[in-house]
Structure formats: C-alpha cells, structure tokens
Amino acid sequence: MEFVLERYNYWIIIVLMMGGLYIVFEAENMIKKLVGLGIFQTSVLFFYVTLGKTAGGTAPILVETGGHGDDHGDGHAAEAGHGAAAVAHGETHAAPVLHEESDVAHQLETVEAEISEGVTELAPNNVDGHASEAHGAQAHGAQAHGAEPGADPGHVANGADAHGAVSDLPSPEFIATPHAPSQAVADAVYGQSGEPLHMVAGDIIYSNPLPHVLMLTAIVVGVATLSVGLALVVRIREAYGTIEMDEVRAADIAEGEAEGDAA
C-alpha cells in the first residue's frame, strides 16, 4: 500500500502522457494532432514538477516577511518528527526542540560530512546561509553558539535570512515555547515587529526550484513548436485544401506516382 501511495502520482502522469501520445498518433486532423502533442508535453512537465515536489514544502521563494508558509505550519510538525527519525542521530530525540529543527533531513549527507569540520566550511560568511551546517552543529549539541558568529546583520537582512535564522533557533524564547513548531513558524511569519531577524528557516521546507526552471524552458519551447506547427497547418490547408493527414498523404502519393510516370 505504501508502495502505491508513493507512486500513484507517476502512474496518473503516465496515463495522461499516454493519452496525449495516443491523440498524436491516432488523430488524422493536424490541429488535433498538435493538441495531442501539447498534452503530451504538458504531461512531461507534470513528471518533472512531481520530482521536485517535497512533502509539506512551499514554493521556492525565500520567505522574507511572511506571506508564504503560513498555512504549512501543521505539516511541519509532522515533517519535523519524521525528519528527525530519518536522521537517526540518537541524541536529537532527547530534546523536543532540537527534534523539531531536524527536518532538514534532506541535508543529511552534507550534515554528516561537515559535522566534523564544524560550521564554517564554505566561505566565512556562508554560515548563516547554510541551514544544514548550523543544524549539524546543534544536533550534536556541540555548541549552539557555533553558528552565532556567522549571523552578521547584513546577510540576515537579505534573502538569506530564511536559512540564516537557524542560528537564532537556540535563543531562549524559542526553546521556552511549549507549542509545536507550527506556533513558532506562525510567530515568525506573522512577526509583529516585522524584523527580518524573526525567521525560523529551519522549519520551512522548499520545493526544488530546478525542475521548475527546466519546465519553464519546456513550456516556452512547446509554444514555439506549436506556433510553427500551426503556421504549417495553415499553409497545408492552402496548398491541399484539407488538413486531414490521410487525405494529404493520398494526394502526396498520387503526385509522386504522377511524377514517376512522367519520368
């Protein structure tokens, strides 16, 4: 059952894809063929976007002042738990607060790779941008302040703060909060003070932006092909008086035979 639940989306997409492909091959009418082609291409978009969707994720626009993520609070609570389980770092389960934060399970490899090296592996001021590293430090209880020095104001103020705020997590107000992380998110998102420092980035999961970018390209390529195809259809209609594939083919064959006789 779990197997089905994990894959039903692919199967639906395959059915849609094949529907489009079937129209392309089955239709004799050229415009209908192009419609089928469009459906086939759109279904491929579904496939890529499905790959990039993360459970409980939100659009890949870094949260600065709220707006996004507000209705995802509940989802995060669950995710966090799961993420922690996946991390399988025994010690993270000890403290509920850390537990919540560990939904960066997708960074698992990076975390593990970098734990030994501490927090500042990339550029010096990259710390705040690197949720996984900051998290790695915390999860091991090594030092909550390990991440602090990286949180320089300039960066927290710009888009980076979504992650940057991880370094804020161990601050007392959050640890003291008895609520589920959804409350923490809500606080941050609706932050009355409006200061960008109030980000709880660790709790925001983003969907993968790369498939989106690729599919934007694919959409545009699709419409370009479509306009060329339609222009051809218009010309074929003018030249043959029909846009039914079989009639055009019959006319072509007749023409070829006529030429063959002449030759």
Partner: peptide, 11 residues
C-alpha cells in the same frame, strides 16, 4: 510536399 514533410518531421 515540402509542407507535409516538414509537418511530419515536426510531429
């Protein structure tokens, strides 16, 4: 016939 050829190629 170039038109049909092109359309087939396009599809």
């Amino acid at each position: 016939r170039a038109l049909t050829a092109s359309f087939n190629y396009l599809i």
